[in-house]
C-alpha cells in the first residue's frame, strides 16, 4: 500500500501565509531574546548599569563561585522536593477523580482550576497572611505547642516549599487526572484476581499505566519551579534564595545585566536539559511501545 500520509515535498504559499504571522512573532520576541541572553553574558558590565563593549568570560566566572554553585544546587533540590510532594498528592487525587461520578469529576475539576487561575500574587499573599506572626496557622501551631507564641512562620525554607507546592500542585493534578481518566481500571481487578495485593497492583499496574501523565506532570511542576523568583523573595529568608531571585536581584538591584545574563544562561541550560530529558524519555517510550505493538 502506498504511503497514506505523504509529507508534502515543499511548503505551499498558502501555508506560509497562515504560518508566518505567529511564527515570525515568536521568532522575533521569544527566540531572539533568548539568544541575546547568551550573547550578553559574554559582554563586560558597564558602571552605569548598561552593557559594555568588547567580549569577556568574567560573567561566566560567577559560576565558579561557591555561593552560586550552592544556589544552583539548592534551586535543583527545592524544585525536586516540590515535584516529589506534588506527585505524592496528585497521584491519589487523580486516581480518585478518575473513579468518581461524572458530576463529582466536574466539581473537583472546578475546585482545582479556581486556585490555579487565581492571581499568583494573591495566592502568595494569602499564605503570608496565614503564616505571619498573628496568622491563623501560626496561632494553631503555637496553640499545639509546636512553636512559641507570636513567632512568625515566614521567611524560611519550609514556607518557600509550602507555597511552591501550593502553586504547582494543579500542574501535577491535571495531566495525571487526564491519564488516569484513560486508564482501564478493570486491569486492577484482573491483577487482584490473579492474587496481587492492593499495593502491588497499584505499583505494578496503575502507576505504569499512567506514566505519561506522571512524566508530563513532573515536567510542568519541575521546570517552572526551577525559575521561581517571587516565592523565595516573598516567603524566604537569606538561606532560601533561588536562582530566579538572584537573577532579578542582579538585574534590578545591582543593575549588572551581563552577570544576570550568565546566571540566566545557566538556567536556560538547566530548563532545556530537564525538558529534553523528560520529554525525550516520553517520546522514546512512545516509539518503543509502537514498535512492540
Amino acid at each position: 500500500m502506498a504511503n497514506e500520509h505523504p509529507t508534502p515535498p515543499h511548503v505551499s504559499r498558502n501555508e506560509w501565509t497562515v504560518t508566518l504571522p505567529s511564527l515570525g512573532w515568536l521568532l522575533i520576541f521569544v527566540i531572539s531574546p533568548t539568544l541575546i541572553i547568551l550573547a550578553q553574558s559574554f559582554r563586560p558590565p558597564d558602571l552605569t548599569g548598561a552593557i559594555g563593549s568588547g567580549w569577556t568570560l568574567q560573567n561566566w566566572e560567577t559560576w565558579l563561585r561557591q555561593d552560586v554553585q550552592h544556589l544552583a544546587l539548592h534551586t535543583l533540590w527545592l524544585s525536586a522536593v516540590t515535584t516529589g510532594f506534588c506527585m505524592m498528592l496528585a497521584i491519589p487525587f487523580g486516581w480518585f477523580m478518575a473513579r468518581t461520578s461524572s458530576r463529582g469529576k466536574q466539581v473537583l475539576q472546578l475546585l482545582v482550576i479556581i486556585p490555579f487561575w487565581t492571581n499568583f500574587l494573591i495566592r502568595i499573599f494569602a499564605w503570608k497572611t496565614l503564616l505571619n506572626q498573628d496568622g491563623l496557622m501560626t496561632r494553631a501551631a503555637a496553640f499545639m505547642g509546636l512553636i512559641p507564641a507570636h513567632e512568625s512562620l515566614l521567611y524560611n525554607e519550609g514556607a518557600v516549599l509550602l507555597v511552591l507546592i501550593y502553586t504547582q500542585l494543579p500542574f501535577a493534578i491535571l495531566p495525571i487526572y487526564a491519564a488516569a481518566e484513560k486508564f482501564d481500571f478493570s486491569l486492577l481487578d484482573a491483577a487482584r484476581d490473579l492474587g496481587a495485593s492492593h499495593l502491588r497492583s497499584f505499583l505494578e499496574v496503575f502507576l505504569p499505566g499512567i506514566k505519561m501523565g506522571i512524566a508530563a506532570g513532573a515536567l510542568m511542576v519541575f521546570v517552572p519551579a526551577l525559575g521561581s523568583f517571587l516565592i523565595p523573595e516573598m516567603m524566604g529568608g537569606h538561606d532560601s534564595e533561588m536562582l530566579g531571585s538572584r537573577i532579578s536581584q542582579r538585574a534590578f538591584a545591582d543593575r549588572n545585566l551581563p552577570e544576570a545574563s550568565a546566571l540566566a544562561s545557566g538556567l536556560v541550560i538547566g530548563v532545556l536539559s530537564a525538558t529534553l530529558f523528560i520529554g525525550g524519555g516520553m517520546a522514546w517510550w512512545r516509539q518503543f511501545k509502537r514498535r512492540q505493538a
Binding site: 531572539s32 521561581s228 523568583f229
Partner: peptide, 24 residues
Amino acid sequence: LLVQLPLVLPEVLMGFSMLLFFVA
C-alpha cells in the same frame, strides 16, 4: 515547538530575555 515555548519557559527567563532584547 515555538508556540509551546512560552508555556514551558519559566517566566523569569521570558521576562529577563525580553528586557535585554528591548534594551539591546
